[in-house]
Design a protein around this nucleic acid. Structure first.
Lengths: 369, 369
DNA sequence: TTGAAAGCGCTAACAG
DNA sequence: CTGTTAGCGCTTTCAA
């Protein structure tokens, strides 16, 4: 349909700017330039442009401002930061920016920071411990005022020791969000994953299910283990046995959800608790291939709810993590620390809620055994 | 199910570190400290730690390295940047980090940058022109080495003039990605949206469809308009009439897809070309509610393909934008500019491909009219 | 009212 | 082989 000629098409064209070679990049105008141009001293210019309480004649002030404007002066923030030890910039490190939960967190934090006049820079660690360390040090060395940090799962799984050194070496405040390294001494805010799962499963039980499958990422996710724990505890709390064969291992991606369905079905489940949205998508696809309908043939509860999954049919009943609340708490905490608060580290828990959809009904026939 | 007591639970606890007040934040150790400690000059330390070709005795070198290590010295990058005019950091500005296309772009660029020893910081503009300007200036002032810039739609829609000033004032190279401001003088790399849409519609036509609906965001998306143009041109190229009533307006979100379906159906379409994944989700939901099956009752082609939509049933035939290719080109371009390349600005086009799924079949009965 | 001077932490050119 | 010096661009104290 397209010849290979269409591929790798590169157009080299002369743009609007007359005989420009590359883009014209003016040397940055500095404070000194403005000082010279306005006939004032550098310090005077600095004062005025930063609205410092200073006693210069209105005349001089005007002249300075006018000059700066005309010359299109903008302060070099790196230099300013060097002098003031403040950059009005904070960082966020996430394991996977493609994960809707984290991109939503990023957006939410960004909005909050902007309100406060801070810029937020997001870095992706790819869920790799060494990248966490790199980014942490880099942001610190670059002079951000504080850091929101969502650690890699690998860290929590492997060894906490290597990162502790890095963490201790960071010279700005940071708060740990969503995923927690127990030994770290810092503010932490996270969602009560265990409780969320507990609610979900308790609900299924209340609708009459007794053989409930659970799909969880326990291998490399602390939160995944907590969700499984919530599942287990809910069963136990209601006098049901925990049965290994009803638990499937997933990895937070669609394929693992897809692949887990058959085993769960043959174990005779009447409901599935899938502990992440992405996996739920895979589950639904497989169910659909098998011509099983939700909730008529099988009930389904999920975790999270992104823009995409919100449009599924049927509406999936799912555990909702309040990202806005999470961001807001994290922001307040970091903000206070940046402001100099030196009180003891704090642990804050955001409670998830079960959002009702239409993906759950009573089990079809009496349970087999 | 949970008393309000569980909400807003805040635990204030003493952490592992014995009588710490807040987190212990050591003063950052500086080059001077290392110099003093090792009995060498600052410049010597600097040379050694940066592996500069310098002629110091192995002995001194060792001592310096050992000292730096022991004192846990890490260079202040802001200061270094001030001195060297290089930060080894580049920025990316995207309109909406929650949009899977952009988060995927971010991740891809990040990987590419990391390979090259650059850190990538991502900023979100919320598709607001003033935020674009802010972020651009801020990154510039902070001393990044270059910027990947995906402009807000608003810019392209509203007025280009206001941002041109800002763009001209930026003192580091930048490349425009995916969305293009025509007047800007800089490297640009984008996907041929018009051609992608053309392929999609041509394919539908080849399968016998003549009444094809199009769902596009033309109001505030240049790329949306291009996709519509591709649709139109494909029709015309194949001797079909362009019919206004077969075009619905969307906004890239699920709800608009959902809402557009009924009108298209009553206009008698046998196939729908939905120009974005997110909208397609809404379309599918509505079709499903109406008990219309894809592709038996209606054919569907989409644009993009993210992790979520890849798991839909049926597989949606869709126009695929090669994010890896896009990033790679953008990176090479920026990289060259950072390296000093001053040749004329370049325009690069990445061709999208139509990925075959199973969402298209021949129209059911002969077309009505 | 205003400016000079010192310094933030680092690098680089040049002189011993 | 090694140290001194002079900045990078900005802020801030303090003296004039």
């Amino acid at each position: 349909m397209s010849g290979p000629a269409r591929l790798k098409r590169t157009v080299r064209l002369r743009q609007t700017m007359p005989n420009s070679v590359g883009r014209h990049m003016a040397r940055r105008v500095t404070l000194k330039d403005v000082a010279r141009e306005s006939g004032m001293s550098e310090s005077a210019v600095s004062q005025v442009l930063n609205n410092r309480p200073c006693r210069l004649s209105e005349d001089s002030k005007q002249r300075i401002r006018e000059c700066a404007q005309r010359m299109n002066y903008r302060a070099n923030r790196a230099a300013r930061g060097l002098a003031t030890k403040r950059s009005e910039t904070v960082g966020l490190i996430v394991p996977d920016i493609e994960n809707p939960f984290f991109s939503s967190l990023a957006k939410s934090l960004e909005a909050r920071c902007r309100q406060a006049g801070l810029a937020l820079f997001v870095a992706n660690s790819d869920d790799r411990i060494e990248h966490d360390c790199e980014q942490l040090q880099r942001m610190d060395a670059l002079g951000v005022d504080g850091i929101f940090f969502v650690p890699s799962n690998e860290i929590i799984a492997d060894d906490e020791s290597s990162i502790m050194d890095v963490l201790n070496g960071v010279s700005v405040p940071f708060v740990m969000v969503d995923r927690i390294i127990d030994d770290a001494v810092c503010d932490k805010v996270f969602v009560d994953n265990e409780y969320g799962a507990h609610q979900a499963v308790e609900y299924l039980i209340s609708r009459g299910h007794t053989r409930i499958g659970c799909l969880a990422n326990t291998r490399n996710s602390q939160n995944g283990r907590l969700r499984l724990a919530g599942y287990r505890n809910a069963l136990v709390d209601h006098g049901l046995d925990f049965d290994d064969s009803l638990v499937a291992e997933g990895d937070y991606h669609g394929a693992s959800g897809y692949g887990a369905v058959d085993a769960l079905l043959s174990a005779g489940v009447t409901a599935i608790f899938s502990t992440s949205d992405l996996m739920t998508i895979g589950v639904m696809r497989r169910l659909s291939e098998l011509s099983l309908r939700v909730p008529d043939d099988i009930s389904l509860v999920s975790f999270d709810r992104n823009e995409t999954s919100a449009f599924f049919l049927p509406d999936i009943t799912s555990v909702h993590q309040d990202v806005a609340e999470l961001s807001s708490r994290a922001f307040d905490l970091l903000s206070a620390r940046i402001g100099g608060d030196a009180s003891d580290p704090v642990l804050q828990v955001v409670e998830p809620t079960l959002v009702m959809g239409t993906s759950v009904s009573e089990p079809r026939d009496q349970d087999v055994r």
